[in-house]
């Protein structure tokens, strides 16, 4: 725990009502209460230790051993040092997947954040049916990814897909194609679907941020003759910076994780054109049963989310004073 950092200019609050986290120490800190407290945490923590922490550690163990299908049945395994890591980083497919992950993540973040921001600006203004329409948008985010994937596979279908029909209807026949089968556009296709899933979530979080901006700032600027564009540029955008960074970091973690959507839409194909890192790990581990290498690749896959998570936690600490 750190004491709240006092800065000259406090960043705008990112959440509506702030609740005190730093509770006063109980006036009579009885040892019994504390013991009950530990007892309360025990089942949950034991569960997470067993099903989350231990498997991840076991993964680390696997990554330095030569484990194949026979290892699954309890056969002999051999310590092989960093051989699995060497095999992974010298596999061109791994780097191909890493590049695809980078493009997929960057593309998704760029569009879902920009569109989400624009929608948040719209929905921050009061108008009839605001709440209803906003909730309708959220439905897109709540659908199981497998369903959204199936949906977009159908929407982007070559001959009978709705998007191609729309393109033909407005005279852009030349653009219509088999989006997910064409290796040149399949990655764009899965990014498109993922942006669709991500926009409502981005909008919702950014909306929370927009509501914390003091309306008097806008009123004062308007009286001083600032137009809508100037107020956006000089009031809204600077004040939204901390929230935006948080939303982007969260988006990075979530987007980097994506597996099901792509798996259902393309299965990584055509010819590995959409085989991002999570699909690469799946291939190595569950299709070729090269457990050692799969575990090593899996651990390498943790690097980006952990870095983003570290940034996220740092920001939380700065804003809340404590985590």
């Amino acid at each position: 725990m750190r004491p709240p950092r006092t800065t000259a200019v406090r960043p705008p609050r990112t959440t509506a009502p702030r609740r005190t986290f730093a509770l006063r120490p109980s006036r009579s800190p009885s040892a019994r209460l504390r013991r009950t407290g530990y007892l309360f945490t025990l089942p949950g923590l034991a569960f997470l230790a067993l099903f989350l922490a231990y498997p991840l550690l076991y993964n680390a163990w696997t990554s330095v051993h030569d484990v194949g299908l026979s290892g699954l049945l309890g056969g002999a395994t051999r310590f092989n040092g960093l051989a699995n890591y060497r095999a992974t980083v010298s596999d061109p497919d791994f780097w191909h997947a890493a590049r695809l992950s980078a493009v997929f993540t960057a593309g998704s973040l760029l569009f879902q954040f920009t569109i989400g921001f624009a929608l948040a600006l719209l929905f921050a203004r009061p108008f009839p049916l605001n709440g209803l329409l906003r909730s309708l948008l959220l439905v897109a985010w709540l659908l199981p990814p497998v369903v959204s994937g199936t949906l977009f596979r159908w929407m982007l279908d070559g001959e009978s897909g709705a998007y191609n029909a729309l393109l033909r209807a407005i005279g852009l026949d030349a653009l219509s194609r088999d989006w997910l089968i064409d290796p040149g556009t399949s990655l764009a296709g899965v990014v498109f679907a993922n942006v669709w899933v991500g926009v409502p979530f981005n909008m919702l979080l950014l909306l929370v941020g927009l509501h914390t901006i003091d309306p008097e700032l806008h009123e004062a600027a308007a009286i001083d003759g600032a137009g809508a564009w100037q107020r956006l540029r000089w009031i809204t955008l600077p004040l939204m910076r901390p929230v935006s960074v948080t939303v982007l970091l969260l988006g990075l973690v979530y987007t980097f994780k994506v597996f099901d959507l792509i798996f259902v839409m393309t299965g990584g194909g055509p010819v590995d054109a959409t085989s991002v890192l999570s699909l690469y790990v799946y291939e190595v581990f569950f299709r070729f049963f090269r457990f050692g290498e799969g575990a090593a690749a899996g651990l390498l896959l943790l690097v980006v989310p952990l870095l983003a998570g570290a940034g996220y936690v740092r920001r939380l600490r700065r804003e809340e004073g404590a985590v």
Binding site: N59, L72, F259, F291, L306
Partner: peptide
């Protein structure tokens, strides 16, 4: 907080074994 970071596939692999 950290527990929410790993991609499911990374956990699925050791859990499978």
């Amino acid at each position: 907080l950290v527990a929410q970071l790993p991609p499911s596939i990374v956990l699925a692999a050791p859990l499978f074994i």
